[in-house]
Design a protein around this nucleic acid. Sequence first.
DNA 1: GTCCGTCTGTGTGGTCTCGCACATATGGAT
DNA 2: ATCCATATGTGCGAGACCACACAGACGGAC
Lengths: 252, 252
Amino acid sequence: MKPANTAIKESPRANHLLAALPAEDFDRIAPHLEFVSLTLGQVLYESGDRMTHIYFPTTAIISLLYIMQNGNTAEIGIAGNNGLVGVALFMGGDTTSNRAVVQSAGRAVRMKPDDLRTEFKRGGLFQDLLLRYTQSLMTQISQTAVCNRLHTVEQQLCRWLLINHDQLPADQLVMTHDLVANMLGVRREGVTLAAGHLQEMGYIQYSRGTVNIIDRKGLEKACCECYQVVSDEYDRLLGQYIRKNLVRKSVP
Amino acid sequence: MKPANTAIKESPRANHLLAALPAEDFDRIAPHLEFVSLTLGQVLYESGDRMTHIYFPTTAIISLLYIMQNGNTAEIGIAGNNGLVGVALFMGGDTTSNRAVVQSAGRAVRMKPDDLRTEFKRGGLFQDLLLRYTQSLMTQISQTAVCNRLHTVEQQLCRWLLINHDQLPADQLVMTHDLVANMLGVRREGVTLAAGHLQEMGYIQYSRGTVNIIDRKGLEKACCECYQVVSDEYDRLLGQYIRKNLVRKSVP
DNA sequence: GTCCGTCTGTGTGGTCTCGCACATATGGAT
DNA sequence: ATCCATATGTGCGAGACCACACAGACGGAC
């Protein structure tokens, strides 16, 4: 169920985008990469902040959260070892109107804006990868919009669990109902209810802040189509670049 | 209320992104632009279709619609004379998982993918503009996600009316409740109710497929913050490039 | 003027989610 | 072992939206 090779997790190459670069490109970029450890709840940047780095998670998972004026929150995207955080740095805006917060503690490599932009301007494969990833992120956000409109809390919880499971080496997630509620933009009680049902069905097993994925297939069945759509689109956009031994769990 | 200069509507420069280009860049691109008339309901591309052109609307408005497997629909973004349709062509994916449909009949200029990519690869201001616009589109989609989760149909209807109003020369929109319902991903009756209330408040006046914006300020007050957030972010990202005489109605 | 398709108004009952209140359970700290 | 902060379970009334059904109103075609 988990990738056999754990040693690779200690390299920047544990990030799938960086892993997709040929040695020539990677070697040029590598000196500009800095390893950092990220703790649960850590904020990488606030809405409107000028970003200080672009992050390529290796084992951490980062949430992109929107915070309403009244304090309500809703997640619009997630990036783990299959992505990056900080598209605004190469898209040109330097900031975005959301917060990036560490969802699951772990490590990432990061890069300074100037180094990033220099490399981006070269216009080669690195640029292609970043732009393609950005498009896949747009798909993810779009699908979140649709999902928010049309699907139940339980379906969305399934989707959220699957997305996070994809980026983790194990079948255990660290998350309280309250935390997930903030991500999904719903009440804590709603999550308790949905999670209770999923546990009853035998798909997950949870207690006090940890959730174990017992039956992934079950979750996939209980989920709306949104998970698969985003997953497929990521594969279509980036699958050709991503090394085979690093493809996600969900691939058959 | 409407721009004084209507002659400019007949030029590709009626599109704000094209208008932002210095003569030197524009003259190089102009020979590759083709004027087209778009009719209400026309589909520019289907989900998964390889796009045949990138479109820069001059007077038309295009909706980006997601269609669920069960036929439900929800709009994820809109592009009028302040934007473009077909970001996937320069982002690298060539297709997206949504449908682009003409929301308001009018004209646009379009460009072939190869010509577009050639110009994009030059890496100058044109590339900057396209990437910045893409980031603003991401903001729009993000905000749609949040709005779908947290706001009422009436608030969303206000937002939708304001966005469309911004791109139109007059204060009249052609739209049935049913059409808007498909855009917002809600029931037709829900739109009737919300529209009835807005009419009662004296903000709009409608009958059989046309809506007149009577009191824009009123709509802005009845709206959620989402409209302003997206509007401000567009200005931040692109305002510096857009010619002053073409800025949107909402600017004070 | 008449007809007919389309657009809009309204009602009923059901489901989902909300906000709030409070009870219970768990695991770490002492 | 005990305590306590945190996490989870549950109940209740309200509101928003749903699906479905059907009535009325308008406007273009003839």
